[in-house]
């Protein structure tokens, strides 16, 4: 800081504390709601301080089954699988295509690059119906494949790896070739280990991306056994108008949003790297 003005420092902290308060408040309210029993919630005025029933509510959420929805753990398992498959799939196909595009010259190389680039301009939200009918025609509704594969193509991850590969000195590949390494050996022995941090950062971002999916799983799953948490909590909330069990709904919401939040908090460095690098 150029100058030292106590008032400015005070103001800075004031702004930040107010900002954090605004940001935290909705989640705080949700957590508080999850700590009370049904009577406290239905008494008209929402309590502002935590109650003593958090454990009961969490247990109820995990064991009690909402009508029309599968058990909580089934949805959690589906969300987890969906996020993991999307993450692994995106990384695998992106790093391979980036490898091909950077380390080989082949006819239609530019065409391949442009096709991948185009996916950037076609978010699933704008073409839901035709995409849905393709998946339906392929018989992939109500399956993990249908949930994940259509979301796996990734221009941003491909660009990230391409960008990173371009910064690796040319001589490294030449040295490996002189040392007798073929393309796949070079990929496995040199490129993959060097990409570790980038892969880890992408894992964080893509896991969150996969976990947050809502529209797509809602379209392609009619079988309850494939419902994900995002769909589940939405449906719980939707029926709450009739029978508001806010404490249980908010317990589910808190549980459903916890995994990615923990990842952001505990892997903040990788998270920031992943977010900033994929936008280059």
């Amino acid at each position: 800081m150029v100058e030292n003005r106590p008032f400015l420092a005070f103001l800075t902290h004031l702004v930040l504390i107010a900002g954090v308060a605004v940001i935290v408040f909705p989640v705080y309210i949700a957590v508080v709601a999850a700590t009370h029993d049904a009577t406290a919630m239905s008494s008209g005025m929402m309590p502002l301080w935590p109650g003593a029933h958090l454990w009961d509510n969490l247990m109820l959420t995990l064991t009690h089954q909402t009508p029309g929805l599968p058990p909580f753990w089934v949805m959690a398992w589906n969300s987890l699988w969906m996020a993991v498959i999307i993450t692994a799939g995106k990384i695998a196909i992106s790093i391979l295509s980036a490898f091909a595009i950077v380390y080989f010259k082949f006819p239609f190389r530019n065409l391949a690059f442009w096709l991948i680039f185009i996916t950037l301009m076609l978010p699933v939200e704008v073409r839901i119906i035709p995409t849905y009918s393709v998946v339906a025609n392929l018989g992939m509704l109500n399956s993990y494949l249908g949930l994940t594969v259509p979301l796996i193509a990734s221009a941003t991850a491909t660009f990230l790896f391409r960008q990173f590969f371009m910064t690796i000195p040319d001589e490294l590949m030449e040295a490996a070739r002189v040392d007798g390494a073929g393309p796949m050996k070079f990929f496995r022995d040199i490129l993959l280990p060097l990409s570790r941090t980038n892969i880890a950062a992408l894992c964080v971002i893509l896991f969150i991306f996969g976990w947050m999916q809502y529209l797509w799983p809602m379209l392609v799953t009619t079988d309850r056994n494939y419902y994900t948490l995002m769909m589940g909590v939405k449906r719980m909330a939707a029926v709450a108008d009739a029978d508001p069990q806010w404490n249980l709904i908010m317990a589910s919401v808190v549980l459903a949003m916890l995994p990615p939040i923990l990842i952001v908090i505990f892997m903040q460095r990788l998270f920031v790297k992943g977010l900033v690098e994929t936008e280059k």
């Binding site: 909705p26 947050m212 999916q213 995002m230 909590v233 908010m250 949003m257 990615p260 903040q268 920031v272």
Partner: peptide
């Protein structure tokens, strides 16, 4: 930063539910 970054990981649908509840 940590206190301000985590809402990124809240899904849009969950953000909707939270504010709808509020």
């Amino acid at each position: 930063s940590t206190l301000l970054l985590w809402p990124y990981a809240v899904a849009p649908v969950v953000a909707g539910i939270l504010w709808w509840f509020m």
